[in-house]
């Protein structure tokens, strides 16, 4: 099978955007940036009144239970799911082909499945200063009580739409449009310089 090309590689990127430690990292980098490259990124959307059935379908396929409430989500490290809009969910799997697993589960009566595996790029920022760096981009509250582990948020940085899931106490997965990914990655590296960052 042909390998998918990431928008972040194999571009002739500047050295500071490549693997290694950069910026003010003498005391150890305070954030780690990486591209997680999940095989599947899906958007699932329920018709009004069908939300519970869709959530049940997500559970059936992924094994992930979705807590109640707007923006709620969960992750097991391999698969992740979170709500990003009323009745709408992003489901992510390390493996490719998740879309076919939903084929018989999310019927047209429940809602729709849209495959965005190529169309979104997943960037992970982790480390003690992850909240600090993200606060430079997004006008949402990243503090743990306001943004619990597993939860998702839809927001934007200028024209760059982003869905953000907190996948750890100091770890966030950011899903951006593929076409914006390189530009956003550069900005993320730039903003991380003062705390020191490592690209993995």
């Amino acid at each position: 099978m042909v390998e998918r090309q990431s928008p972040l590689e194999p571009a002739p990127l500047e050295p500071e955007l490549r693997t290694g430690s950069h910026g003010d990292f003498e005391h150890g980098p305070d954030v780690i940036l990486s591209e997680t490259r999940p095989g599947s990124i899906l958007q699932l959307a329920a018709w009004p009144g069908q939300e519970k059935n869709l959530i049940a379908g997500i559970h059936t396929v992924t094994g992930l239970a979705l807590p109640d409430g707007a923006g709620a989500g969960s992750t097991d490290g391999v698969r992740s799911v979170f709500g990003f809009a009323p009745g709408k969910f992003t489901v992510v799997d390390e493996a490719e082909g998740l879309v076919s697993a939903f084929a018989g589960v999310v019927t047209p009566a429940i809602g729709t499945v849209t495959d965005l595996s190529h169309g979104r790029t997943a960037i992970r920022i982790a480390g003690p200063k992850a909240e600090w760096v993200l606060a430079k981009f997004f006008a949402i509250d990243f503090a743990l009580p306001a943004f619990p582990v597993g939860a998702g948020r839809s927001t934007m940085h200028h024209d760059v739409f982003a869905q953000i899931q907190r996948t750890g106490a100091d770890q966030f997965d950011i899903y951006v449009f593929r076409s914006f990914a390189r530009s956003f990655w550069k900005a993320l590296c730039h903003a991380s310089e003062e705390v020191g960052y490592e690209v993995q």
């Binding site: 002739p12 076409s179 730039h190």
Partner: peptide, 17 residues
């Protein structure tokens, strides 16, 4: 702030490079 210069957001197609 970051709204100008190199950090202005830009969109690239998959075949850009």
């Amino acid at each position: 702030a970051e709204r100008f210069g190199d950090l202005r957001p830009e969109r690239l197609t998959p075949m850009h490079d």
